[in-house]
Design a protein around this nucleic acid. Sequence first.
DNA 1: AGACTACTTGGCATATTCGCCAAGTAAAGC
DNA 2: GCTTTACTTGGCGAATATGCCAAGTAGTCT
Lengths: 109, 109
Amino acid sequence: MPKLASRTPHATRDARRIAVIKALAHPSRLAIAEALQAGERCVCDLRDLVGADLSTVSKHLTVMRKAGLLDMEKRGLNVFYRLRCPCLLNFFECVDRLIPAAQPKTTCK
Amino acid sequence: MPKLASRTPHATRDARRIAVIKALAHPSRLAIAEALQAGERCVCDLRDLVGADLSTVSKHLTVMRKAGLLDMEKRGLNVFYRLRCPCLLNFFECVDRLIPAAQPKTTCK
DNA sequence: AGACTACTTGGCATATTCGCCAAGTAAAGC
DNA sequence: GCTTTACTTGGCGAATATGCCAAGTAGTCT
C-alpha cells in the first residue's frame, strides 16, 4: 500500500488518531481502560481483571502507553498505571451514542 | 483465549464498542469516516480518496456498515454511503482531546 | 439482447496482531 | 549476597486483518 498518510492533508493528526483508536480496539485493552476510569491499578490487578498472562497484559499496557493513553509509575515492587486523561469517559459515551444507530429508525442526537 | 466477553459484566456492550472502535482503527476507514462527515459519497468517490482497489474499499465499507456506522443506498448505478450518526464528530473530538496528553505536563480538561 | 459501468464477493498470498513461555531486570526482605 | 515478588522483553507459532485479482451481480444505455 502506498501509505495513505503521505497522500492526505491531515496525515499526522490521523496517524495519532489511529494510534489512540487502535489502543482501545481490543477487548482486554478496552476492559483495562474502563477499569482505570475508577483510578490507578497495578499490573497484577489488571492481570486478574483480564485473565491473561502477566507478560500479555504488560504488552497491552505498553501499546496503550505509547499511544498516549496511560501514565506509569513504579512504587516499590509494583507498577501503577493510570489514564492520562479522564476525558476517556466522554470518548466511550461517543461510542455508545453510535451504537443505537445500529438499529434502523433510531435517532441519535 | 477464554473469551473475555464471557467473563465480564458488560460483555455485550463492550463487544459493540469494540466493533465500532475497530471499524475506525484503520487509516483508510478513518479517512472514509472523516470524508462522510461532509455528506454522503458513492464508492467510487471513496476509492479516489483512499487510492485503493474498488474491491478493497467495498470491503472496508462493509466492515463499517456491520459495525453500525454507515447506511447505504443504491441509486442508479451508484451506491451511496453515509454516516448513521453525525455525532461521530464528537467521537473524533474526544480522540483529539486525548492526543495532547501524549506530551508530559499538558493538561486535558 | 449485448455492452458498459458501478459495485460486491470469493479466494488467496502477505502482513500484522496476539498470547504464551522463557529469560532478564529491579526493588524488597532476610 | 541470595531469594522472592512484580514486572518487562525476546521470540515464536497461531490467529486475524489487509489488499489485489478474478469472477459475479445489478442497473443503464443503445
